[in-house]
Amino acid sequence: TTVKVNGTKYKFDTPEEAQKFAKKAADKYNLKVVVDGDDLRVE
């Protein structure tokens, strides 16, 4: 599972880890998590 934040992709072994990271990033930058198929985007 990958998470894309500000054009940078981060790869995670499990969707749970990816979800946690995406949520933290979204909170930090005051953005929202967008599900894109198997991957997540923070925008």
Rank of each mutant, 00 (worst) to 15 (best):
D39E: 14
R41M: 09
D38P: 11
K32N: 09
A26R: 04
K32G: 06
L31D: 04
L31H: 07
D36A: 06
K32Q: 12
K11A: 08
V5R: 01
P15A: 12
V33F: 05
V33E: 02
E16G: 08
L40W: 08
K28M: 14
K11Y: 14
A25T: 14
V34M: 08
F12A: 00
Y29D: 05
F21W: 08
V35S: 09
T14M: 03
G37Q: 05
N6M: 14
K32E: 09
T2L: 07
T14S: 11
F12G: 00
L31F: 08
V35I: 13
D36M: 07
L40D: 03
E17N: 06
T1G: 04
E17P: 00
V42Q: 02
T1Q: 07
V5K: 01
V5D: 01
K20L: 13
A25P: 01
Q19V: 12
Y10D: 00
T14L: 04
A26F: 03
K32C: 10
V35F: 12
K9Y: 14
L40Y: 10
T8I: 14
A26K: 04
G7L: 05
E17Y: 02
K24S: 13
V35A: 10
K4M: 15
Y29I: 04
G37M: 05
K28I: 10
E43L: 09
G7T: 05
V33R: 00
E16L: 08
Y10E: 00
P15K: 12
G37N: 06
G37V: 04
Y10Q: 00
V3K: 01
V3R: 00
P15I: 11
Y10F: 10
V3N: 01
A22Q: 01
K4E: 13
F21A: 03
T1E: 02
G37E: 05
K4W: 15
G7K: 06
V33G: 01
D38G: 10
A22F: 03
T2R: 05
D39N: 10
F21G: 00
D27H: 10
K20F: 10
P15E: 07
T8R: 15
D38A: 11
T14E: 03
L40F: 09
K11N: 09
N30Y: 08
R41Q: 06
D38Q: 11
K20D: 12
V35T: 09
T1S: 07
D13H: 09
Y29G: 06
R41W: 08
Y29R: 05
T8C: 15
A26S: 06
Y29W: 12
E16T: 07
R41H: 06
A22L: 05
L31E: 04
K32Y: 10
K4G: 04
T2A: 06
Y29E: 05
D36K: 04
L40N: 02
E17V: 03
V34T: 10
T8G: 05
L40I: 12
K9F: 13
N6S: 05
V34Y: 12
K23I: 08
K4Q: 13
T1R: 10
P15R: 13
R41S: 11
L40C: 07
K4S: 15
Y10P: 00
V3A: 02
T1H: 11
D38N: 12
L31M: 14
E17T: 04
K11H: 13
V42C: 07
K11V: 14
T2C: 14
K11C: 13
K20V: 11
A18D: 00
V33T: 02
F21N: 00
R41P: 03
D39F: 12
F12L: 02
A25Q: 14
K11E: 09
V5F: 15
K4F: 15
K28W: 14
D38L: 12
D39R: 04
K23A: 10
Y29H: 10
K23Q: 14
A25E: 11
T2V: 12
V33D: 02
L40T: 03
E16Q: 10
D13E: 11
T8K: 15
K20S: 12
V35R: 10
L31S: 11
G37L: 04
P15L: 13
G37K: 05
V33L: 07
D13F: 07
K24Y: 15
T1N: 07
A26V: 03
R41A: 09
K20H: 10
A26H: 03
N30K: 11
V42H: 02
Y10C: 07
D13W: 06
N30Q: 10
V3W: 00
K32M: 12
V34K: 06
L31K: 06
T2G: 03
E16D: 09
F21H: 01
V3L: 02
Y29M: 10
V35Q: 12
D13R: 14
T14F: 04
A26E: 03
Q19P: 00
T2M: 08
G37H: 05
Q19L: 15
K9M: 14
A18K: 01
T1P: 06
K20Q: 13
V42Y: 03
A25W: 15
V35N: 08
V33I: 13
D38K: 12
V35D: 07
P15Q: 09
K24F: 14
D39H: 10
N6L: 14
Y29K: 04
Y29V: 03
D13L: 10
P15S: 09
Y10S: 00
K24I: 12
T8P: 00
E43I: 13
T14R: 04
R41C: 08
R41D: 03
G7V: 03
K28R: 12
K9W: 13
E43D: 09
E17G: 05
T8V: 14
A22M: 03
D36I: 08
K28E: 10
V33C: 07
V35Y: 12
V42K: 02
A18C: 02
L40M: 06
V34H: 07
L31V: 13
G7D: 05
A26M: 04
K28Q: 11
R41I: 15
F12H: 01
D38H: 10
D13N: 13
P15F: 14
T1Y: 15
E17Q: 11
A22K: 01
N30R: 09
D36V: 10
A18V: 00
K4H: 15
D13M: 09
G7E: 04
D39W: 09
A18Q: 01
K23W: 09
E16R: 07
D27T: 09
L31Y: 09
